[in-house]
Simulated scan of single mutants.
Amino acid sequence: MNFQPLVPVGGLPGWVLLNKTMDRQTELFNQSPAIVRDTDYFEQNIGNVRSAEDLVSDRRLLQVALGAFGLGDDLNSRALIKRVLEDGTSEPGALANRLADERYTKLSDAFGFAEPGLPRTALAGFGREIADRYRSLEFEVAVGEQDESLRLAMNARRELSEILQTDVSEDAKWFTIMGIPPLRKVFETALGLPSSFAQLDIDRQLEEFKELASDKLGIDTLSVLNDDEVKEDFIRQFLLRDQIASFQVQSSNAIALTLLQSAPSNFGTV
């Protein structure tokens, strides 16, 4: 049985407590028997994998590979994952490039099965790299089982750090954010955007994201999120808005329940 993170409260208080105890809780989680077994097996055997078929044929290896990119729910979608890995990302028509979720692109690039020569699985240290990612994301999953909003906050902090390091244009970074569902949700919540927003034309979405980030959060360029304080303020804004939305839902439910309870017990009788 894996160590279960201690998250006694949610929202901003939970975020503060989680960060204060993060190092110790992460250490205990990584020592969980199941985590140790899975990561040890991956590090010992991934070096023998030379093709996408090799990877998807070994469920234990595939579990860690997918979990390392937040795609654990696709464990039974072997045909999809095989195609994503075999196509690579260099061609516009590659499956990973046609899927809306940027995590498939990250997975395909990480393993490099479509590239000339040996895949990245043959590189020294590759097993450790993926195993470390797996441990990190599995801890996020475990936190999410206690409080999904805190999981989203952790995911946002990690994903933003990775995206901001990439040498691409500002718009490309925004499109990456928009293509990672958990991170996109954090931005939509922090900016107060409705769920119907995703139905807009993609270029219009980009304009709205940039404009609202500047007006509401003071984020004129994503590079400002390289500052830890600015990034933390952004995450706190998400958690605050998420809490407010949750309170509103709870209040609406409470009102509805009160109305039902106060309705005449003989309603509908003659």
Rank of each mutant, 00 (worst) to 15 (best):
D227Q: 12
D233A: 13
F238Q: 07
F42N: 14
L164M: 13
E102W: 02
L260T: 14
V143S: 06
L222C: 06
Q243L: 11
V49Y: 08
A153Y: 01
T21P: 01
L6D: 11
V249W: 00
D228M: 12
N76F: 02
I81K: 04
T121Q: 12
G14K: 02
N48K: 14
V64A: 09
N226E: 15
T105C: 10
S108I: 08
Q31G: 01
F247C: 08
K210I: 04
S214V: 06
D201Q: 10
S136N: 12
R59K: 15
L152D: 04
D58S: 08
L62C: 00
R120F: 12
S252H: 10
G72V: 00
T39A: 03
A172Y: 07
E207F: 05
N226R: 15
F175N: 14
P181S: 08
D109W: 06
E148F: 04
P116I: 06
L240P: 02
E232D: 15
L55V: 01
T269P: 00
I219Q: 05
E229L: 10
A100D: 14
R83Q: 14
E115V: 13
N76Q: 09
Q25W: 07
V36T: 14
Q199T: 13
Q63A: 12
F247D: 13
M154L: 15
D23E: 15
K82H: 08
T269Q: 11
L95V: 01
K231V: 05
E145Y: 03
G47A: 12
G192S: 04
F111I: 09
L206T: 03
I244P: 05
Q205G: 06
A263I: 03
L260P: 02
F69W: 09
S223I: 12
N30Y: 05
F139Q: 05
K106H: 04
L12P: 00
S161K: 15
E115H: 11
V270K: 07
F234G: 04
S149E: 06
G70Y: 03
D58C: 11
I163V: 15
T26Q: 14
R133D: 05
L17K: 11
Q25Y: 07
F29S: 06
L17M: 15
K82V: 00
A114Q: 09
I130F: 02
T89A: 01
L152H: 05
E53N: 08
R184A: 03
S57P: 02
L217M: 15
R151Y: 00
T121W: 13
D167L: 10
P5E: 06
K231A: 14
A256Y: 09
L80F: 13
E91V: 08
F69R: 05
D227L: 08
Q261F: 10
V186N: 01
V56N: 11
K106D: 10
V7L: 09
S214R: 14
R120A: 11
P13W: 12
P8H: 10
V56H: 11
A245N: 13
S196M: 03
R50T: 12
N19E: 08
F238Y: 15
I235W: 04
G117S: 09
V168I: 15
R103I: 00
F113T: 13
D101I: 05
K210L: 00
R78N: 05
G10F: 04
N266I: 03
P181C: 08
Q248M: 12
E232N: 14
K82D: 02
E170I: 08
S149Q: 07
S90Q: 15
F267R: 04
L193N: 03
S252M: 11
E53M: 05
Y134T: 03
D23H: 12
A213M: 04
R60D: 11
M1D: 10
T258K: 11
R241I: 02
I255G: 01
